[in-house]
Amino acid sequence: VDYIVEYDYDAQHDDELTIRKGDIIKNVKKLEEEGWLEGELNGKRGMFPDNFVKEIK
């Protein structure tokens, strides 16, 4: 499942992704941690907030 970024987010920890509006995040999975998703961007896998992105259908 792929998501498109709607709002910029700067990573706060090493396991998070810095994302920018218009980025496409690939292979996204829901995490047990409420409010977070995990996906791949530019060869890096990491977490990001689910309210900054929208699923591409």
Score class of each variant (00 low, 15 high):
38 E>L: 06
45 R>Y: 08
53 V>F: 03
2 D>M: 15
39 G>S: 01
48 F>E: 00
36 W>N: 02
29 K>F: 15
13 H>P: 01
1 V>H: 13
31 L>H: 10
8 D>T: 10
56 I>Y: 04
1 V>S: 14
36 W>A: 02
23 D>W: 12
28 V>D: 00
45 R>A: 04
8 D>Y: 04
55 E>N: 03
9 Y>G: 01
39 G>E: 00
38 E>G: 05
37 L>D: 04
12 Q>L: 14
19 I>K: 00
2 D>N: 14
32 E>N: 11
20 R>S: 05
31 L>T: 11
8 D>M: 05
7 Y>N: 11
54 K>Q: 08
36 W>K: 06
31 L>F: 09
6 E>D: 04
45 R>S: 07
28 V>T: 06
43 G>R: 08
33 E>T: 08
30 K>D: 07
18 T>K: 05
24 I>F: 05
48 F>A: 02
20 R>A: 06
56 I>D: 06
54 K>M: 09
29 K>G: 11
45 R>M: 04
23 D>T: 06
34 E>M: 14
51 N>T: 14
48 F>P: 01
2 D>Y: 15
56 I>M: 04
24 I>K: 05
13 H>W: 12
19 I>E: 00
12 Q>V: 12
46 G>E: 00
14 D>F: 14
17 L>T: 01
45 R>P: 03
56 I>V: 07
8 D>S: 14
50 D>Q: 14
21 K>R: 11
46 G>L: 02
38 E>D: 12
10 D>S: 12
10 D>F: 14
15 D>G: 12
7 Y>M: 13
22 G>R: 06
52 F>R: 06
41 L>H: 06
31 L>S: 09
56 I>K: 05
17 L>G: 00
22 G>S: 05
39 G>Y: 00
52 F>G: 04
10 D>K: 13
47 M>I: 10
4 I>T: 05
54 K>I: 06
36 W>R: 06
50 D>Y: 15
55 E>R: 10
41 L>T: 06
42 N>W: 14
24 I>L: 06
17 L>Q: 01
30 K>R: 07
39 G>V: 00
40 E>T: 12
9 Y>D: 00
10 D>E: 08
52 F>P: 02
9 Y>E: 00
12 Q>K: 11
2 D>A: 15
32 E>Q: 14
56 I>W: 02
12 Q>W: 07
1 V>D: 06
4 I>Y: 09
16 E>I: 02
19 I>V: 04
15 D>H: 12
20 R>P: 00
26 K>I: 14
45 R>Q: 05
36 W>D: 01
19 I>R: 00
45 R>E: 03
50 D>R: 15
26 K>V: 12
40 E>R: 07
4 I>N: 04
35 G>T: 06
5 V>F: 02
29 K>L: 15
5 V>L: 01
30 K>V: 12
48 F>D: 00
14 D>W: 14
20 R>K: 08
29 K>N: 08
8 D>L: 02
54 K>P: 02
32 E>K: 12
35 G>M: 04
7 Y>G: 13
14 D>T: 12
20 R>D: 01
36 W>Y: 09
9 Y>S: 02
6 E>W: 09
35 G>V: 03
45 R>W: 12
55 E>I: 11
11 A>E: 05
19 I>D: 00
5 V>R: 01
48 F>W: 02
27 N>W: 14
3 Y>M: 06
40 E>P: 00
50 D>M: 15
25 I>G: 00
16 E>T: 02
24 I>T: 05
8 D>N: 13
34 E>A: 13
24 I>N: 03
37 L>M: 11
47 M>Y: 07
4 I>A: 07
1 V>T: 11
8 D>G: 07
47 M>P: 05
51 N>D: 10
51 N>K: 14
29 K>E: 11
16 E>F: 07
29 K>Y: 15
35 G>R: 06
38 E>Q: 07
1 V>W: 06
20 R>V: 09
21 K>M: 11
31 L>M: 11
19 I>M: 15
15 D>R: 14
3 Y>D: 00
18 T>W: 02
18 T>V: 07
52 F>T: 05
43 G>H: 13
19 I>H: 01
44 K>A: 09
13 H>E: 09
38 E>Y: 12
3 Y>N: 02
43 G>K: 08
3 Y>G: 03
32 E>S: 14
13 H>R: 13
49 P>V: 02
51 N>P: 05
34 E>I: 10
14 D>Q: 14
53 V>K: 02
55 E>A: 07
49 P>T: 07
15 D>K: 14
37 L>S: 12
24 I>S: 03
5 V>Q: 01
25 I>D: 00
38 E>H: 08
48 F>M: 09
15 D>A: 13
47 M>L: 09
56 I>R: 10
36 W>F: 09
32 E>T: 13
6 E>Y: 08
41 L>M: 08
38 E>K: 08
4 I>M: 09
1 V>P: 12
22 G>Y: 09
51 N>S: 10
41 L>N: 05
46 G>V: 03
23 D>Q: 15
41 L>G: 02
57 K>G: 15
51 N>M: 12
18 T>D: 06
26 K>M: 12
7 Y>P: 00
43 G>A: 09
40 E>Q: 09
24 I>Y: 06
26 K>T: 14
21 K>W: 11
50 D>W: 15
53 V>E: 02
21 K>I: 09
26 K>S: 10
37 L>E: 02
33 E>F: 13
1 V>Y: 13
53 V>L: 03
32 E>R: 09
27 N>P: 00
9 Y>N: 04
47 M>D: 02
8 D>R: 07
17 L>A: 01
7 Y>K: 15
14 D>I: 14
57 K>F: 14
27 N>V: 05
42 N>H: 11
23 D>Y: 06
29 K>W: 15
49 P>L: 10
3 Y>A: 10
37 L>K: 04
43 G>E: 06
1 V>M: 08
6 E>I: 15
19 I>W: 01
26 K>L: 08
49 P>G: 06
40 E>N: 09
19 I>Q: 00
23 D>P: 00
28 V>L: 03
14 D>N: 12
6 E>Q: 11
44 K>N: 09
46 G>H: 01
11 A>S: 12
11 A>P: 11
49 P>F: 12
45 R>H: 05
36 W>V: 05
57 K>Q: 15
20 R>T: 06
12 Q>R: 10
28 V>G: 13
48 F>Q: 00
42 N>R: 13
3 Y>K: 03
10 D>R: 14
48 F>R: 00
37 L>T: 05
49 P>E: 03
11 A>V: 02
46 G>D: 00
28 V>Q: 01
36 W>S: 02
47 M>W: 07
26 K>D: 02
5 V>I: 03
54 K>G: 04
39 G>D: 00
18 T>I: 04
51 N>Q: 11
7 Y>S: 11
43 G>F: 14
51 N>G: 09
20 R>G: 03
25 I>L: 12
22 G>K: 04
4 I>Q: 08
10 D>I: 14
34 E>T: 10
4 I>H: 05
38 E>I: 11
28 V>M: 02
6 E>S: 08
2 D>W: 15
31 L>Q: 09
39 G>H: 00
52 F>H: 09
48 F>T: 01
7 Y>H: 13
35 G>K: 05
33 E>A: 12
13 H>A: 10
54 K>A: 09
46 G>R: 02
37 L>Y: 06
53 V>W: 04
9 Y>F: 10
32 E>W: 11
46 G>M: 01
34 E>H: 11
50 D>K: 15
6 E>M: 14
18 T>A: 05
27 N>D: 11
21 K>H: 07
8 D>P: 11
22 G>I: 01
11 A>N: 04
16 E>H: 10
41 L>W: 10
17 L>M: 08
28 V>F: 02
10 D>T: 12
49 P>Y: 11
29 K>T: 11
2 D>S: 14
41 L>F: 11
